[in-house]
Simulated scan of single mutants.
Amino acid sequence: MRGHGVTLMPAAGVGILAGMEGDTVVSFDLETLDLVAMVRPARPGWLFGGHPIPLPDGRHVAVAERAPADPATGDTGADLARLAGRVVIRDAASLAPVSDFSSYGLRPHDMQVTGDHRHLVIANYGSTVAADAVAGQPVIPHVVAPCATIVELSSGRLVDRIAGADPAVELRHLVAPSLDRIFGVTARVVPAAPGAGSERDPAAEPGLDYAPALPLKIVGRQARPLMADQADLARHGLSIAANPAADEILVTFPARHLIAVFDGATGNTRKLIRTDALGLHWPCGLALSPDGGSWYVTGYWEGIMTLRADNHALAGIAALPAWWGHSHMVVAGA
């Protein structure tokens, strides 16, 4: 299993780990970590999108599923209709499908339920396989229509589709504590260039690397790029999380050993935190503690760094265990 995103659902007594571009999602017992259920996508040939998202009732989970890869035709509307992903609502414990609706975009990945529980906001990569892709060679995705879609949770109805700020980069992760606080991170995949003068991102696929791609904030019905004056630092934004109490958004940039802190209202950069200067390289996973007092950050094959939530001061680094790689994290307790 190629796992990616994980969520904990105490009301159902399980955690859920979703495959990324894979055909497996599992649920596990929160106390013993024993396997409870393992399922495949609802449609033959489809793949899971990577993130299980708990729904407000605490007993159901939304999981994105991706249509089989197929080259774009040049007709974006037709490609969206033909290749749009689905959001499948499943029972959290058994993972049995209950209902589903369109993601209204290509290759859905991350999703968030807004704080009022009315909407599901979906990050759609907006890409598909290139027509000239060669089997066995590094694949640069063909970016067609990156977008965030806002869906009414009760009905699955599309409320809005907002195009990414840059049509050439994938929209991968987002937070949406409210509809006026939607922030996203993007990715620009390029061929690896040995000796190009910067560290290769260890989380990149073999033969590939990440070039700078600006994070964004949705303002009205438009995506506004952030960090435009510091674009070189915005290389491979990975995890993104919100602290509503402080009205701030944090993003990890592992290839730059960096965490950026954004103001929730304006999108302005409040602070840049160099994690390598604090003792942690390649920051990937990011999560706020349940009590809101601490941020936890995992490094790529490194330890866990703890930052105070009020001022982002270093509270400590735990060197072990050090067995996580590219993806994300959750925190069950402080």
Results as ranks from 00 to 15, higher is better:
189 V>T: 14
214 L>N: 04
183 F>L: 05
189 V>R: 08
146 P>E: 03
171 L>F: 12
136 G>C: 11
116 D>V: 01
146 P>F: 00
130 A>G: 15
117 H>W: 13
138 P>Y: 02
164 G>M: 04
208 L>I: 10
179 L>G: 06
163 A>D: 09
160 D>A: 15
123 A>M: 04
156 G>I: 09
192 A>H: 13
191 P>L: 15
157 R>L: 13
119 H>D: 10
182 I>Y: 00
215 P>W: 09
101 F>W: 10
217 K>T: 07
103 S>K: 03
109 H>D: 12
225 P>V: 04
125 Y>I: 14
160 D>T: 03
185 V>M: 08
119 H>Q: 12
143 V>S: 06
126 G>S: 08
166 D>A: 09
202 P>G: 07
195 G>W: 05
130 A>C: 13
115 G>F: 03
195 G>C: 08
208 L>Y: 06
131 A>G: 08
177 P>C: 01
145 A>S: 14
180 D>N: 11
218 I>R: 03
167 P>W: 00
185 V>W: 04
173 H>C: 04
222 Q>E: 15
229 D>V: 13
231 A>N: 07
125 Y>V: 13
217 K>V: 14
185 V>H: 01
163 A>L: 12
104 Y>T: 00
116 D>E: 06
142 H>A: 15
224 R>Q: 14
160 D>N: 13
176 A>S: 03
134 V>D: 03
119 H>C: 14
192 A>G: 12
220 G>P: 04
204 A>Q: 06
146 P>Y: 03
194 P>W: 08
167 P>F: 00
107 R>I: 14
132 D>C: 10
115 G>L: 06
230 Q>W: 12
144 V>R: 05
223 A>G: 02
206 P>Y: 07
151 V>G: 02
182 I>E: 00
226 L>W: 00
183 F>G: 00
117 H>Q: 14
226 L>I: 07
222 Q>Y: 11
123 A>V: 01
136 G>H: 11
215 P>A: 09
199 E>M: 15
115 G>H: 05
162 I>A: 04
120 L>M: 10
165 A>Y: 12
132 D>K: 05
117 H>A: 15
145 A>W: 02
213 A>F: 05
120 L>R: 00
122 I>Y: 01
124 N>C: 01
180 D>H: 02
223 A>T: 03
178 S>K: 01
160 D>I: 06
151 V>Q: 02
110 D>Q: 14
217 K>C: 12
213 A>S: 12
151 V>A: 11
145 A>G: 05
146 P>T: 05
196 A>V: 12
209 D>Q: 02
161 R>V: 09
189 V>A: 11
160 D>K: 13
231 A>D: 07
186 T>C: 11
216 L>R: 03
180 D>I: 05
206 P>N: 00
106 L>M: 08
149 T>W: 04
126 G>W: 02
135 A>I: 14
167 P>N: 00
106 L>V: 00
187 A>T: 14
151 V>S: 05
171 L>A: 15
191 P>H: 09
169 V>M: 04
227 M>E: 00
139 V>G: 09
180 D>G: 03
188 R>D: 13
114 T>S: 02
